[in-house]
């Protein structure tokens, strides 16, 4: 349908990005194709060691899903997006397809083995999340293609994760966010995935910070070393959410905290990760 309507048409999912753009007259499409109320697009299920989310699953549905709690990063992320109103409307598929540099989902999911299932006129395809997000507001989706499902592999036992963001107030985008997924063997970090949100054109994988943790006993020193690598990896723009230097500092503070939570979760502890507010 979008193909027939041409370039001046847009999909409307939860509308939490598109509606504000329309309101501010930054976007002015002639047609909106409403994806709401299409049967079978909103679901959360576990299959073959992975969680599957229908593209139209609302953030709030994921926040309150017992299944989604199996992957801490998912629950942390869903529960912290904007405010209740936004979480009740916004969708995981819509958020990924929008690829806003400040969006929460991409930075959270990129630390996990995440596949995005897409559907277009020429049939379906599956794109790994790291190939899906191309640039700010740019994905691998063709104009008439949409996300149908997000598939996230459940991390192995002994792996723990956390997603933390700092927001100046509930409804706004974070100033910075950090996602961590650690695989631990005792005090030694066997594997680490670290992503930084809102501090670049896309979510940034802090690979040097990951390297700094891999094979190390996690203590104040090794955690600080990784946090400093993350500070260097961040490439933030100054704006009302913070100066560039401060956003880098937030990355350091959030990463330290997220690693500590992830380590405890890897040990099987129940830890509530809470987003930080002003």
């Amino acid at each position: 349908m979008l193909g027939q309507l041409g370039e001046n048409a847009k999909f409307l999912a939860g509308g939490q990005s598109l509606i504000p753009l329309l309101k501010l007259r930054f976007a002015n499409p002639e047609h909106l194709v409403d994806l709401n109320f299409i049967a079978g697009t909103s679901f959360i299920k576990q299959e073959a060691g992975a969680l599957h989310f229908g593209a139209m699953s609302r953030h709030a549905e994921i926040e309150h899903s017992a299944l989604a709690r199996k992957i801490s990063v998912l629950h942390d992320c869903a529960a912290g997006i904007a405010d209740v109103q936004v979480r009740n409307r916004g969708t995981i598929g819509g958020s990924l397809a929008e690829a806003d540099p400040s969006g929460d989902w991409a930075s959270a999911l990129i630390t996990l083995d995440t596949a995005v299932h897409c559907l277009g006129r020429n049939g379906g395809r599956t794109i790994h999340l790291s190939d899906f997000i191309k640039d700010a507001y740019t994905t691998a989706l063709a104009h008439d293609e949409l996300v149908t499902e997000v598939e996230v592999k459940i991390p192995p036992k002994g792996s723990g994760g956390a997603y933390l963001a700092f927001k100046r107030s509930a409804p706004v985008y974070p100033s910075a966010s950090v996602a961590v997924q650690l695989t631990m063997a005792g005090d030694v970090c066997q594997d680490a995935a670290i992503a930084l949100g809102c501090v670049g054109l896309t979510a940034i994988r802090a690979t040097n910070a990951e390297t700094a943790l891999r094979g190390q006993i996690l203590n104040d020193k090794t955690i600080s070393a990784a946090a400093e690598e993350a500070r260097a990896a961040a490439d933030p723009q100054p704006d009302m959410r913070g100066s560039a230097e401060y956003k880098r500092q937030l990355v350091v503070a959030l990463l330290k905290r997220a690693i500590q939570i992830a380590v405890r979760r890897a040990r099987g502890e129940q830890v509530e990760g809470a987003h930080l507010y002003a």
Binding site: D239, M240, Y277
Partner: peptide, 28 residues
């Protein structure tokens, strides 16, 4: 702690939406 009407050096207002201005909410 949260609210400031900010302008850049040439007088562009940087806080023309609540997303930028962040008025206090019950959460804060």
């Amino acid at each position: 702690l949260m609210e400031t009407c900010a302008y850049d050096a040439v007088g562009n207002m940087l806080t023309s939406t609540f997303s930028d201005y962040t008025p206090i909410t019950a959460m804060n």
